[in-house]
Amino acid sequence: MQMSSIVRTTADILFPFILIYGFYIVIHGHLTPGGGFQGGAVLASGVLLLLFAYRYNESTRIVKKTVMKTIESGGLLLFIITALSAMLLGAGFFFNWAASGGMIFGDLVAFGSTAANLNTGGLIPIMNLAVGIEVVGAISVILLALLSGIKEKI
């Protein structure tokens, strides 16, 4: 079964905007409400829109299962490597060594109500990105597996 051309065209138009919104939520996780998990869920909803708008065989040509598995594993690996990087400097696991350090994501933050500055947070934005990548991979893999279990493929 295939959705009508209205649904397919709407999905094609909306997909880039959903991606942009999800990346915005992931990147601004340390400044505004949101973070890696929420932004990853938004990105995965865009993938779900594509999966439902097209036939199973067509959509799995775009959203490949092996690619999603690689993305998921890579996100978790990036998260662990980011956490391990503090141990190279002699600090403990998960120590936020880049915060207020003057380097990347290292601007100083004053206490109290401040304006949004993207260049703060130390390791937190990198971890947000890693978790966002992992969540979009995991949810897409789950959706693809559940879809492949249906006998008459939608």
Binding site: H30, L31, N96, A99, V109, T114, T120, G122, I124
Partner: peptide
């Protein structure tokens, strides 16, 4: 804010 540099 002072320790981790995140507003959230």
């Amino acid at each position: 804010q002072l320790e981790s540099g995140a507003n959230n």
